[in-house]
Nucleic acid binder design. Sequence first.
RNA 1: GGAGGAGUACCCAAGUGGCUGAAGGGGACGGUUUGCUAAACCGUUAGUGUUCGAUAGGGCAGCGAGGGUUCGAAUCCCUCCUCCUCCGCCA
Length: 417
Amino acid sequence: MINPRILRDTPEVVEAALTNRNADVSLLHQLQDLDATWRRENQALDALKAERNQSVPKGAPTPHQREALANLSATIKTRQQQVNDLDEARRALAMQIPNILTPDVPIGPDDRHNRVIRTVGTPQQRDFPPKSHDELATHLGIIDFDRAAKIAGSRFAIFKGLGARLERAIATFMLNTHVNDFGYCELSPPVLINTAALQGTGQLPKFKDDQYHVDNDYWLSPTAEVQLTNFHANEILSAADLPLKYCAFTPCFRKEAGSYGTDMKGLIRLHQFNKVELVQLVTPETSNDHLMTLLSHAETILQRLELPYRVVALCSGDTGFSAAQTFDLEVWLPAQNQYREISSCSNFLDFQAIRSKIRYRHADGSVRYLHTLNGSGLAVGRTMAAILENYQDASGNVYIPNALQGYMELEVITHES
RNA sequence: GGAGGAGUACCCAAGUGGCUGAAGGGGACGGUUUGCUAAACCGUUAGUGUUCGAUAGGGCAGCGAGGGUUCGAAUCCCUCCUCCUCCGCCA
């Protein structure tokens, strides 16, 4: 949620941000009206309450006093209901307004206006046409999409034998890197989560259709960002505790509504996939610097796996609802002859912290909202796809990157293995 | 899933309708004493949210959450959440 102070004091900033995102500016005006009305009504109500507090006698009231108080109480009750309704409407509207973008976010309506920041590594030149990762994996017998369809449906995968081992190796390598080299605390959280958590990070209320909603009002987590960020919801942390850095390896669930027909084959777009996620809770002054280091942590994984990638600054129209600024990492997929997203690293400023009430005590004693950041470190399925495609030979064998050989206890996956 | 019990401030805890926005203790902080420390004694101590002013300060809310009864609720009623004990089931 955008800081109410900014909404009230400098609405033009919010208006500009909404325009850059192609978002509905009329929401803002509705919100301003509601906010003004709420404040006026709430003040009037508080005055009535003050009057009541002063007229309440120490002991039992006389019948005359009782009648006057009864009238006052009835009025307060009615108006309290009105104020509550206004407050809820105000809040519901505020929850639907996206974050304000950082000034250096490129302006543009869609992903064609994203800016490539740097390209790292060079796609390997081959004298044979590269096979797609799903073709390779099926041929090697390490992923079974058809049988996954039998027990679940389309957009699911079953990793088998060395495929399952490779997924485990990739996840362990990533977690070990983040925990041992970068100081993240590993969490293993629930993936069945509640509504409040999803509201906190911004997936609800606006993106209800993307989420799996299950029995008992639980939701299947679309990303561990939700669990890791809400780990400290409704807390006031000590400034000395910051920055807090958490990582987790979890399954993620997405309905992928509206993406019919795209990426139907392979590991790129599944209803369930595994991901290593990074989250940081930091002081406001340092969040921009921490975004750069978080990005470097995700990049390190690609570098150690020796996969070619590029860093892309998302433009205003492509930046997610809750984010103020996002850098995507895109890995080279030879069979697709293009770079594809494998990580998304964002600074949310205080947007999520306000929604989830995550605060810290500043050195001067005041209580302030902190800043939250997150990024994939990385999507495991897409990483496997990239390894398969980039490390294949002409016969369809796949070599294991040096960094993973210790975890795999193997150097190459062949049809015979 | 069934049967009980419990949630009060940083911690422990008193409190079954008005004198309780909350006794008492611990802790923390300040002071007296002291060469220093400890002890003792004295004092201070709800954090927070919101609003008005926007410096000082004031109003309102707030006893797990949300409703209800009542002139008035920490206290009575309802729903929910969390924790504990026992039974059942289960990885």
